[in-house]
């Protein structure tokens, strides 16, 4: 068993960011870090040891603090067990959910910026559901 295992992370760029996966890739290459990278449609998949990845995360957040999100991913890039090339096409597992979360990222940026500004936010009062008995009572009241 290997003592030190490489970790895989995905860096996802928010759709409202000025960055593109290509720009981010070039920036990372210029940082001369000991990482393997794959450019994808939503950002980058980065492989490396935990320390280098933490450094990389710190670096990319300088570009767009609230526009780059990341998480640990299980499979390394190009793994034949999930790679579309070897599975005969179709989206890879988890893609649809990633796509959904990708669309929510601009809203999360708004939220993070509002926290940074120390904005007061008020939770909207959610009206409780009306019970069946109350509806029946209301009908009886208007009955002619």
């Amino acid at each position: 068993m290997r003592e030190k295992r490489d970790v895989v992370r995905i860096f996802v760029i928010s759709p409202d960011s000025d960055l593109t996966p290509e720009l981010l890739y070039r920036y990372m290459v210029n940082q001369k870090m000991n990482l393997k990278m794959k450019e994808t449609c939503f950002g980058l998949i980065v492989v490396g040891d935990e320390k280098s990845l933490a450094e990389a995360l710190h670096e990319v957040k300088k570009l767009d603090k609230y526009g780059i999100f990341s998480k640990v991913r299980g499979y390394p890039p190009g793994d034949p067990r999930i790679c579309r090339a070897s599975r005969g096409g179709g989206p890879r597992m988890g893609f649809h959910f990633l796509e959904y979360e990708f669309s929510v990222l601009p809203l999360i940026r708004e939220g993070l910026e509002s926290v940074e500004r120390g904005e007061e936010v008020r939770e909207r009062h959610v009206e409780e559901r009306v019970s069946v008995k109350e509806v029946e009572k209301a009908f009886r009241e208007v009955e002619l």
């Binding site: 929510v104 809203l107 999360i108 708004e110 939220g111 993070l112 509002s114 926290v115 904005e119 936010v121 008020r122 939770e123 909207r124």
Partner: peptide, 14 residues
């Protein structure tokens, strides 16, 4: 809950 509007997102993140 997952936010659907900007206001909901602010509440969620907060």
């Amino acid at each position: 809950e997952y936010p659907k509007t900007r206001e909901e997102a602010k509440v969620m993140v907060k």
